[in-house]
Design a protein around this nucleic acid. Structure first.
Length: 567
RNA sequence: GCGGCGGUCGUCCAGCCUGGUCUAGGACGCCGGCCUCCCAAGCCGGAGAUCCCGGGUUCAAAUCCCGGCCGCCGCACCA
């Protein structure tokens, strides 16, 4: 076992022991892909969530808003989104022993042929043609069916009211887009953010907290006008992005290009400027979690790796012990796919209207019908004929003009009633379906990454060098000599004042001072205040730094202000 | 799901091969007490284990056999 995997073991051990996380339902043997967050883990995740909200919502509050939508959605939503059809793997069951295989992998293993992307019926016929049997018992294989990674449930008592647990929060943003867009007074670009639980019925989740069947997703669906020339303000997050392009990957190269996001757009590496912008925000956010720039890499997904809705996808990978490069965020250019699909399936108009900066004059052909002439031909039938003729397009009328006459609703209409004229028209705006880029993070994965980056061993003891902003507890307060009532009194007063000021604080009078420092180092408390005899004389206390173990003396009534300033 | 490895106090590990003396042992941690004026000191005491689950073999199973569950690694999928 190498050093890095050893480190991971130690983190998992620490996590379970001190209360960051552990496998769910342990008393019943656990359930793969499900983890509990303990007291410290809950606080840490909340702090990660807050930091994410800061970067992705509040620092962009002129254009990004937060919403919350249900975990459960009716079947139609995921039919429209494409998940019912595409969020699947093909599987095949042995009729004799009941074992289940991934059909495409089985065929690739046994026959050594490429079958990726084939439909279930095609896979079934290959199995029949080649006489493929169950590799375990030799039994007959059933027809290939698809295994959907959506968790299915029912709403209410009726079996046919099928619903699913969402595998991403995104569909809530799409289905409520019109409401939010309206509430935000029709402004574009518009980001809709959501933090919430999602569930994916992974066939076999591994890697502990890295792959879960239920987890918290933090997403922004960012809606914009694809024709809008306005640039994102790249100067706000002046990041250099390290990008491994799909082109390089398909050539088997691992050459990383290092570019500013706006350069990546200009050079055609990233297809959309907003996609690039949010990648730079994502990197700035990752750095605040304790990652160095050289531990971050954006990997472009190959076409066959991309989700069905995406035109281009980058994963933000970060390097951690044990698993090397791990995806912490996905950045997908979803175009107008989702809104278009929901428009089709719901019948709701998902287009938006935007006024042009300058109205423009266009000349276009227009059909003019000579109504006087029409009256001569059709008399009292004129209104009916007119109504029918108005449905004709310019092209249809041009055809009629060349043919001499047309029969509409049983009326024979001569071409001479039509005339085509060029007319000038003022266009003030246009209707279109907004395009979407999506940055999407898995919160529990970030929690593991943060612990991995913060974990240090120094002199045989563990120190979690968590960024103070993320630390579950911000301050520890100790009386140096616990049996000295006067020291305890002062220490307790500082503790209560700190709690009142909104800090998370640990008070401990148990064991030697060194032991108490060690205990709080292990859970990443950045500052420890110790009350000693001098405190009683001059009203000062020591503040001890977790990372350096250095101490300074400050006035005891300034402790809280000092801590707040140093978070 | 397949293949490999594993599962014993909170944690790490010993015991398993060669079944009985294991009412399962140690270390660390935890709790109580003593001591201690700043970095896991020391002393005394204490709590804490369905030996992963189910079946089988046996007079006797933590130990041997079978099945399952869970975890880790590889394949695949993905935040």
């Amino acid at each position: 076992m190498d050093v890095s995997s050893d480190k991971y073991e130690k983190i998992v051990d620490l996590a379970a022991r001190r209360g960051f996380f552990w496998p769910s339902y342990e008393i019943y043997g656990g359930l793969a892909g499900f983890y509990d967050l303990g007291p410290l883990g809950s606080l840490l995740k909340e702090n990660i969530r807050k930091l994410w909200l800061d970067y992705f919502v509040f620092r962009h509050q002129d254009m990004v808003v937060l919403i919350e939508t249900p975990v459960i959605a009716p079947e139609i939503v995921f039919k429209a989104s494409g998940h019912v059809e595409s969020f699947t793997d093909p599987i095949v069951t042995c009729s004799k022993c009941g074992k289940i295989y991934r059909a495409d992998h089985l065929l690739e293993d046994i026959l050594g042929i490429k079958v990726e992307g084939l439909r279930p019926e095609e896979l079934t016929s290959i199995i029949r043609e080649k006489g493929v049997k169950c590799p375990s018992c030799g039994g007959e294989l059933e027809d290939v069916r698809t295994f959907n990674l959506l968790f299915q449930t029912n709403v209410g008592p009726y079996k046919h009211d099928v619903a699913y647990l969402r595998p991403e929060a995104a569909q809530g943003m799409f289905t409520s887009f019109k409401r939010v867009f309206n509430a935000m007074r029709y402004s574009l670009p518009l980001g809709i953010a959501q933090v919430g639980r999602v569930a994916r019925n992974e066939i076999s989740p591994r890697q502990g907290m890295v792959r879960l069947r239920e987890f918290t997703i933090m997403e922004v669906e960012f809606f914009f006008d694809p024709e809008d020339a306005e640039e994102p303000d790249f100067s706000r997050f002046p990041e250099k992005l390290r990008i491994l392009t799909a082109d390089a990957r398909s050539k088997g190269l691992d050459e990383v290009v290092v570019v500013r996001p706006e350069e990546a757009v200009a050079e055609g590496i990233v297809l959309n400027k907003w996609l690039a912008y949010w990648m730079s925000v994502a990197q700035a956010f990752a750095k605040e979690l304790g990652l160095r720039e050289d531990e971050i890499l954006f990997e472009e997904k190959l076409p066959e790796e991309r989700a069905h809705y995406s035109k281009q996808t980058f994963d933000q990978l970060v390097s951690i012990s044990r698993w090397g490069w791990v995806e912490i965020s996905g950045h997908a250019y979803r175009t107008d796919y989702d809104l278009s699909r929901h428009m089709q399936f719901s019948g709701e108009d998902m287009t938006v209207y935007r006024e042009l900066k300058k109205p423009k004059e266009v000349t276009k052909k227009s059909v003019v019908i000579d109504q006087e002439l029409l009256k001569e031909y059709f008399g009292s039938d004129t209104p009916r004929v007119l109504q029918a003729l108005r449905r004709l397009s310019v092209e249809e009328v041009e055809k009629i003009l060349s043919e001499g006459e047309v029969i509409v609703d049983g009326f024979k209409v001569p071409a001479r009633v039509f005339r085509i004229e060029e007319v000038k028209e003022v266009v003030r705006g246009r209707r279109f379906i907004p395009h979407v880029v999506e940055p999407s993070f898995g919160a529990e994965r970030l929690l593991l990454v943060v612990l991995d980056k913060a974990y240090y061993e120094e002199g045989g003891r563990v120190v979690l060098k968590l960024p103070p902003k993320l630390a579950p507890y911000k301050l520890a307060v100790f009386p140096l000599i616990p049996k000295e009532e006067s020291l305890r009194t002062l220490a307790r007063r500082i503790y209560h004042d700190a709690v009142k000021a909104g800090l998370t604080v640990i008070y401990d009078e148990d064991g030697s001072i060194g032991r108490r420092y060690a205990r709080v180092d292990e859970i990443g408390v950045p500052f420890a205040v110790t009350v000693d005899y001098q405190s009683l004389e001059d009203n000062t206390v020591t503040v001890r730094f977790r990372d350096s173990r250095e101490q300074i003396r400050i006035k005891s009534d300034e402790v809280i202000k000092w801590v707040l300033n140093n978070l």
